[in-house]
Design a binder for these strands. Structure first.
Lengths: 208, 208
DNA sequence: GTCTATAAAGTGATAGAC
DNA sequence: GTCTATCACTTTATAGAC
């Protein structure tokens, strides 16, 4: 009944790891600092000492993953953006593959669930934080989508991008459950998943 | 600062209406019974008198909308299921149009946001409640999708349905924001939205 | 940097008067 | 059916000892 106590890493890192798990399972409101510090094996007061408040802890949980995730997305995009023979598949791979790599380990997969929660909560302060810090990523991808889909009007393009991100966010939040068959290698399994998502997104973006 | 008080309808109905708004805005944990009863203009004790507990109130918020919504979906599906010349568009319209009609008024649109939250929360008791009471709807639609897409393997089909429902749930939870241009009639606007969603879903389900 | 103790406010739920 | 008052906890946050 008592949750197992994490004993590796610094206090700060233990709090972040425990927060990721509990926010995924019970939400930002549902997970209390008491559950969180007890699961991390640290003192209750440690959250306020290291992060200042629960809200700032939430922001750090996002930063810890999104800084690296979005940097990898932009690096991948930079290699192909504006290039003549770049395809829609290439751009979508640049967006999806870094997230899939993150979901590879259990704790990364849990983070995608936290992200899906943030997506569904229409909380203004959280949305503003994400928009201010990571909004430029989606804008760069949108620019490239617009270049590759010149036949679509702006409203039409935004509609489709919104639907695709909704589908991908939802799908990636469920990765914890998808069981890889034992006769398929981890690498092959991820490759198949990537092909599923990219194929779906290409169809959704470019249908007539 | 003080929320406006709803004064129409029975106490029970006022609580349900206020709960829908607050659950959409602040989540099931985030909205307290005190905020809720104060916004509904009823006494704090009324929730427990009429519903038994906060959790049972949550269930009733879902029942109030989903009973009618899913009945309309199944009625529309029954007219076309198994029929020779039925298309994928027809089946998707049977799923999407009742939800779009619901989103027509503001309070219905807010409910779609509550539904998106429930989707993102991987809360077991809530998922079980929805699965027990409304799982048969998705199963009937899945059967019909399988009939119309015989070239897809079962895992492939489930993947695509999962991605499509994710996209639709996300899109419909945002309807509160989509502004209809003043030169477009409400009916035309909804028709255009339906075409967007159906076109996207057809492409995502049936691409090669 | 970590601890205990506690403040101050909020939570769902309920007993009992009307 | 509605009300007040209150119980029994839990919440975030912080002051101050070590």
């Amino acid at each position: 009944m008592t949750p197992p106590v994490n004993t590796s890493g610094s206090t700060k890192e233990r709090i972040l790891a425990a927060a990721e798990v509990l926010f995924a399972q019970r939400g930002f409101d549902g997970a209390s600092l008491r559950q969180l510090t007890s699961s991390a094996g640290v003192n209750l007061a440690a959250v306020n000492y290291h992060f200042g408040s629960k809200e700032k802890l939430v922001e750090q949980v996002f930063r810890r993953r999104l800084d690296a995730l979005n940097a990898r997305r932009l690096t991948a995009l930079a290699k192909i953006a504006g290039v003549e023979n770049t395809t829609l598949e290439d751009v979508l791979a640049a967006y999806i593959r870094p997230a899939l790599d993150l979901s590879h380990d259990d704790s990364g997969a849990l983070f995608m669930r936290v992200l899906a929660r943030a997506f569904a909560e229409h909380d203004d302060t959280l949305r503003q934080f994400l928009s201010e810090n990571y909004g430029h990523v989606m804008r760069q991808f949108t620019t490239e989508f617009a270049r590759l889909l010149p036949q679509l009007s702006k409203p039409e393009l935004y509609w489709r991008i919104d639907l695709v991100t909704g589908a991908l966010t939802h799908a990636m939040s469920g990765f914890g459950m998808i069981q890889r068959k034992s006769d398929v290698s981890e690498h092959t399994h991820r490759e198949q998943t990537a092909q599923h998502l990219i194929g779906f997104a290409v169809a959704g973006l470019s249908h007539p």
